[in-house]
């Protein structure tokens, strides 16, 4: 899925640590309306986010910032435009939170710390506290305030609510939804991605297996992994979710990586699936039609 005018774009990007690739040949745009990266732990979401933040260089392929490859871009402008929001633990435990926020500001603008804390719904007096003296929700707001300090156009949100309880999650989501920045959201929480992202990409074993409008993906998935993710969400008052297929199986080394866990796996799945357009989304599955119709 590519479109023109995206602030950030991955073009056939392969990423890894040392010589071991963990994200394979991924192409995607950070389009308007919020983009979600969905997948289980170890699927490569955070690795991809680190590449978009310029913290990890691709083994092959290109990350583009505007019309230039990131490694040739004006990094000062990039750092102003793109900021991360990590989990609430992303504050230096020894540093007062006001100082953590001030780190993002030029010396002359450090008086803005109180204003930024207020913007995220915190009492400016909390600036003198250390992270362990704040609640998880307050810490997450400080992390957001720090990211907002430089006036970014795009926030890369890496599991911003996963360590928070449900009521605090809701308030943080309200705050994120109210911000006027673009966002790339990395999460395994489908409710969060439904709330904040118009487009989503589902990652499995370092590959994008399905991309498209979030509402379509979650209401009528075309990949068995997307469906498994959706069906694994417990519903209040309903029966507990039933695992389908071998949920703990490792990704297959050849063919479709999901086939060892896929309840619809067939001999054809021993060949790697090519991504194709189907029913308003892009999907990499030999059995996508069967998934849609089942």
């Amino acid at each position: 899925m590519t479109s023109t005018g995206a602030l950030l774009r991955a073009e056939r990007v392969t990423l890894g640590y040392g010589r071991r690739p963990v994200v394979h040949d991924v192409s995607l745009d950070i389009a308007e309306g919020g983009v979600g990266l969905i997948g289980e732990s170890g699927s490569g979401k955070t690795t991809l986010a680190r590449a978009f933040l310029g913290l990890l260089s691709p083994m092959s392929g290109t990350i583009r910032y505007g019309d230039r490859p990131l490694h040739k871009a004006d990094m000062k402008a990039f750092r102003r435009d793109v900021q991360p929001v990590f989990q609430a633990e992303a504050l230096d435990p020894r540093m007062r939170v006001g100082r953590s926020v001030a780190e993002a500001l030029p010396r002359a603008a450090r008086s803005r710390v109180g204003e930024l804390l207020e913007q995220v719904g915190l009492d400016p007096a909390l600036a003198d506290r250390r992270p362990h003296q704040l609640s998880g929700g307050q810490r997450q707001r400080v992390v957001i305030a720090r990211a907002l300090a430089v006036g970014p156009r795009l926030l890369i949100l890496d599991e911003p609510t996963s360590a928070l309880d449900v009521t605090v999650q809701a308030r943080i989501l309200d705050l994120l939804a109210s911000l006027e920045t673009e966002r790339l959201l990395i999460t395994h929480n489908l409710a969060v991605v439904r709330r904040l992202c118009r487009t989503s990409h589902v990652l499995f074993a370092g590959r994008v297996v399905e991309s498209g409008p979030t509402s379509e993906l979650l209401s009528n998935p075309a990949h068995p992994y997307t469906r498994a993710l959706r069906d694994a969400v417990p519903r209040l008052g309903g029966d507990p979710p039933e695992p389908k297929g071998a949920t703990e199986a490792v990704p297959a080394a050849t063919g479709c990586a999901f086939r060892l866990r896929c309840p619809l796996a067939a001999p054809v799945c021993e060949r790697p699936p090519e991504p194709r357009d189907l029913a308003g989304r892009r999907v990499a599955c030999h059995r996508a039609e069967d998934v849609l119709s089942s």
């Binding site: 680190r50 933040l53 310029g54 913290l55 750092r79 793109v82 900021q83 991360p84 990590f86 989990q87 633990e89 992303a90 504050l91 230096d92 540093m95 953590s100 780190e103 993002a104 992390v143 720090r146 990211a147 430089v150």
Partner: peptide, 9 residues
């Protein structure tokens, strides 16, 4: 992450 955040700033 706080070191990554500082890098990103």
């Amino acid at each position: 992450p706080y070191v990554d955040a500082a890098r990103c700033l």
